[in-house]
């Protein structure tokens, strides 16, 4: 007769990724590479924001970009045309990036000589919030056409980021978007969050966003 033995594991499924993310974060710190995880839904203006960010900071930082998508290389092409070191990552259908995938991306990109890497995560407000990528800071974009109710619908994302960019602010008069309602909803979920209204199209607010990055990089280096 076969004998069965119950063996207790009692382990959170996310624990493995969380641990690997911590290791990656520490290694990046050691190598002085600041990794920004940029999240949002599809079509919020992530790539245009990345281009604006490069424009604003390229004279003072050596920047690299990881473009993560389910398919295509349109984003990497756009960023590469701007003269930045970039690679396109394909998740092959997966809806978020894990710490291991981020590590692979960074290895392919080559972080030697880079100060600042932007990870343009897959356009998704759900599971990208659950998987720690190992980034130094987490940022998200909410664009005006998406509506002011999004913090109510996707609370986890708004609760876990360090900064929220509200993009397409130049188009606010065409939409019923209540900026103050968003501020109130978001700060209830995340009291320490910084909210910066921008327009990646016109450049409005980009200086403030660049200043936020400078300050965070400085503080991260010092910590």
């Amino acid at each position: 007769m076969e004998t069965f033995k119950v063996m207790e594991i009692k382990k959170s499924v996310y624990e493995g990724n969380d641990r690997r993310a911590e290791v990656l974060r520490a290694e990046l710190k050691e190598g002085k590479v600041f990794l920004l995880n940029l999240m949002s839904s599809p079509g919020s203006g992530k790539t245009t924001t990345v281009l604006r960010t490069i424009e604003a900071l390229r004279d003072e930082m050596r920047i690299g970009v990881l473009e993560a998508d389910i398919d295509s290389d349109v984003d990497a092409k756009t960023v590469s045309d701007a003269g930045t070191r970039v690679i396109q990552m394909h998740s092959g259908g997966m809806c978020h990036l894990t710490a291991d995938m981020t590590r692979q991306g960074l290895e392919c990109l080559g972080t030697d000589g880079l100060d600042f890497v932007i990870l343009e995560n897959i356009g998704n407000l759900i599971c990208t919030a659950e998987a720690d990528t190992g980034a130094s800071r987490n940022a998200m974009i909410l664009s005006v056409p998406e509506g002011d109710d999004k913090p109510l619908k996707y609370p986890m994302m708004f609760a876990m980021v360090d900064v929220l960019l509200i993009n397409k602010i130049d188009a606010i008069s065409f939409f019923d978007f209540d900026f103050e309602a968003v501020r109130e909803r978001v700060t209830r979920l995340n009291p320490g969050i910084r909210i910066i209204p921008i327009s990646a199209k016109t450049g409005e607010g980009v200086a403030e966003w660049a200043e936020w990055i400078r300050t965070e990089v400085r503080e991260w280096k010092r910590a």
Binding site: E2, T3, F4, K5, V6, M7, E8, I9, K10, K11, S12, V13
Partner: peptide, 8 residues
């Protein structure tokens, strides 16, 4: 959570 396994 991964609670347990039953090994044989």
């Amino acid at each position: 959570m991964i609670k347990e396994i039953v090994a044989c």
